[in-house]
């Protein structure tokens, strides 16, 4: 039986706001097994990013718990086997791509020789090997996003968490994300990603969960869901979040 990589139990996250507490996630429970590509879907404000923030230890849950590889997500050791690609490009622009990757490799305590090999390998994979010695601030937006991809896989992660991985990516970047997801899947690794691009999700995911207003409204194998609803993932998504009967404009 496949190992449980992500286990979320009765997760609740509240944010204090001026008038009242805002509940971002309500009693969310889910499990992701090793080797699965898991699509985490939902409209804006559904609680996807908050859940990812909990998984990465940025946000402490109000109630419930999240466990990765059997370790509570608040423990830094839980992040040893994780790669994370944020939605936006958040990297030190005063460093070169090579220096940035070397810095992250050091945080993962990858031995120097192995780190150098891996840096060359990932830079080649994201097609940045010719620009590796240039400062990141001189890169185009697409190139900066590919640096993000490179840093997400520098530690050869067993679990890759992607937050809107294709949002705003150039075609090369999108292709690379797909390639990386397929490659990791073929190696038996786990991918957990949030996305709005449902066509993309339908092609690459094994299982999906559809989240709305902080709760999972539907969860299951992609094929099973397609058979159950007899329509595409986009229509399933709209039905599940309550948009099936919207009048056609025009």
């Amino acid at each position: 039986m496949a190992e449980t990589v992500i286990k979320i139990e009765h997760l609740r996250v509240e944010y204090p706001s001026e008038s009242e507490k805002k509940v971002a996630v309500k009693d969310l429970s889910l499990e992701v097994k090793q080797g699965e590509v898991f699509g985490f879907l939902g409209p804006n404000g559904a609680g996807k990013t908050t859940t990812i923030n909990v998984l990465l230890g940025y946000v402490k849950p109000t109630a419930g718990k999240a466990i990765i590889f059997g370790v509570d997500v608040q423990e830094p050791i839980a992040r040893h086997r994780i790669g994370y690609l944020p939605e936006l490009t958040y990297y030190y622009k005063f460093l070169t791509a090579e220096e940035l990757l070397r810095f992250y490799a050091k945080l993962f305590q990858i031995p120097k020789e192995i780190a150098e090999e891996r840096i060359d390998k990932v830079l080649k994979l994201v097609e940045l090997e010719n620009a590796k010695s240039r400062l990141i601030k001189t890169y185009s937006k697409g190139m900066q996003q590919r640096v993000g991809l490179a840093q997400a896989i520098i530690n050869d992660p067993d679990l890759l968490i992607l937050d809107e991985p294709t949002s705003g990516l150039d075609p090369i970047g999108k292709m690379k994300v797909r390639q990386i997801i397929h490659k990791l899947k073929s190696e038996g690794k786990t991918v957990f990603f949030s996305s709005h691009e449902l066509g993309e999700v339908e092609t690459v995911s094994d299982r999906v969960a559809i989240l709305n207003e902080g709760e999972i409204k539907e969860e299951g194998n992609v094929r099973d869901l397609l058979n159950k609803y007899k329509c595409g993932l986009e229509e399933i998504f709209l039905k599940v979040i309550g948009y099936e009967d919207l009048p056609v404009i025009g």
């Binding site: 230890g57 830094p76 040893h80 994370y84 944020p86 958040y90 945080l107 993962f108």
Partner: peptide, 14 residues
């Protein structure tokens, strides 16, 4: 502000 803290804290660092 620049968001660089997020990929950083996604690494095994406190």
């Amino acid at each position: 502000e620049n968001g660089t803290i997020f990929p950083l804290l996604a690494k095994p660092v406190t």
